[in-house]
Design a protein around this nucleic acid. Structure first.
Lengths: 317, 317
DNA sequence: GGGGATTCTGCAAGCGGTTGCGTTATGGTG
DNA sequence: CACCATAACGCAACCGCTTGCAGAATCCCC
């Protein structure tokens, strides 16, 4: 029923090894027989069985991508780009979701290890020790986390945050609120130290906050009380929540307060006012991660972020 | 380096077939030896190689999910749910993106066919003929498309659309605009015929429109000119664009015009006013699709939609 | 025209499991 | 106690493909 290499061999009068070679090492087989085998294979609708190939070669031509939450708007562009890059080189991509749990993460890595040639982990939650142990079972590249020994793709939030604060400063804001993320978040710390480097603005840190719309909403009162005329939020969701919260307090954005987010997720582009934000190169990161994986190079890369100015920022009154 | 079934067999003093059976047919092996094999396997860190297993059994324990655009906010919840359902039964999930192209779709189905036990196709673009041909290579279930012979999961937009128009009617709107989608869209037709069945409101069809924010934005003028006080949009993106377009024309939502969307994507929950919309059971559809696939039942299911009333609808002036 | 190098192809042993069949040990029955 | 059913396990073939090795054919050069 399913056509195998043997069928092709029989039909074209050569040994299976020759058929095998016309697919995996074409230069080793005579041009004439090669085309003959190829046409026969085509007629029969033959496609090499990847599982069988994997068994002998040890390479599956599959990659795995593990993210914390597929439904979080931050990830889909990354997944999409990773998929495209993989397809381009004839790899298939497993996608998995850990639901933000470190245990699920380790379990998934284990489960995938025999079935993929490599894994890309986005902002993994597991401990360094666990990751280093896992790295011995299967090669992987990490996105948005520093891990010695593993290939790494970083998005430079710091420089983006600085750009954002400079943008606010340039508009004339002298006091800006930093609506930070969860305590202990690496990103949050990164943003803060970068923001503090900007001259001419006084930074008021407000937080920690949940990295959600709700978190931003709840922080609105403290932002108002801080007397800041501009705010940089931990991410776009927080920014959107903040804008709504400020609205409830009678404060308009950007007339009364300027708000800038981080990430550049779709909802930020669609909300009103359209969100000024620091665009994270998620697509580039996804693409690069699978490229690194396939080429088996272990480098650590830092991707530029950039500021996208839209409607949520303006000069202070 | 990698521990195989033979290593376990040697270390526990039994034949490989016994080891094999303790994993794939535990009841066939004596309890004592079973536990011995199991502990040895545990110690050695043995995990059955799925590729090898697939080779003999023909079952890969992998599933594939093919969507038009991973980055379209409509899909991620579906993907996430499908992944969770698959994981629960110890299946792995390939996720693929066709970039809205039928050709890519067929190519992907071909490429996956040997590597998965089944495929779920979301709103496939390919022709019926093509799909029926592909169905012979690999079992699949289709979401949001009628296809005889294949297992099908439908989301009942029609009833949702009716609910939406009834909601508007209930608020007192007597003239509602139907901001439709692309010409020839099955969904669009479905929505229209359902909406027309509601008594007491006059329906003004405006379209076809691109199924995007831009499409909705562009339709704003015609909605105003129609004299409608309420509008049902083809989807949430169109609704959001429409709201923005109306705003530019000096019309407030919901004060001047009530707008309801369809899909219930995240950006609709985050935009202002929060969008009243017909929630599509995307997660349920994803979950159900993989369940059908795994259980190999070919049924056609229609999932309920429901109306989520938020802030973009109100009584007319 | 003979010898060595090259090219091309066949042979067969795996890769890591599964599974039908056969063998042995065990238990139950009349 | 002889007999047979049953349970537990071993044996070996096989799934579809790759690959090191060796043989045959062809080619080149002096």
């Amino acid at each position: 029923m399913t056509v195998t290499i043997r069928d092709v061999a029989r039909a074209s009068g050569v040994h299976v090894s020759t058929v095998s070679r016309t697919f995996s090492a074409p230069h080793m087989v005579n041009a004439a027989t090669r085309t003959r085998v190829l046409t026969v294979a085509e007629e029969l609708g033959y496609r090499p069985n990847r599982a069988a190939r994997a068994l002998t070669t040890g390479r599956t031509h599959n990659l795995g991508l593990i993210v914390a939450d597929i439904a979080n708007p931050f990830f889909p562009p990354l997944i999409k780009a990773a998929h495209a890059a993989a397809r381009q080189r004839d790899y298939h991509l497993f996608v998995a979701d850990t639901d933000e749990e470190a245990a699920a993460e380790e379990e998934l890595v284990q489960a995938f290890s025999k079935q993929v040639d490599g894994l890309v982990l986005c902002s993994p939650r597991s401990s360094n020790k666990a990751l280093e142990r896992l790295a011995q079972r299967v090669p992987f590249v990490v996105i948005n986390r520093r891990l010695r020994g593993a290939a790494t793709v970083l998005m430079d939030v710091g420089s983006g945050a600085r750009l954002a604060v400079e943008h606010l400063a340039g508009l004339g804001h002298r006091r800006v609120a930093l609506v930070s993320g969860p305590a202990g978040s690496w990103t949050s710390a990164e943003i803060r130290t970068a923001a503090e480097q900007v001259d001419g603005v006084e930074l008021v840190v407000i937080g920690p906050n949940a990295p959600t719309e709700r978190g931003g909403f709840a922080a609105a009162g403290r932002v108002r009380d801080s007397g800041a005329t501009g705010a940089l939020a931990y991410n776009d969701l927080v920014a959107i929540g903040l804008i709504e919260g400020l609205g409830d307090l009678g404060l308009g954005v950007p007339e009364d307060v300027s708000v800038v987010g981080i990430d550049d997720i779709v909802p930020g582009r669609l909300s009103r006012p359209k969100l000024t934000t620091v665009a994270m190169p998620t697509a580039a990161a996804g693409r690069l991660a699978v490229d690194l994986l396939i080429q088996e190079v272990t480098a650590t890369t830092s991707l530029e972020t950039r500021l996208v100015i839209r409607d949520s920022t303006a000069p202070p009154r």
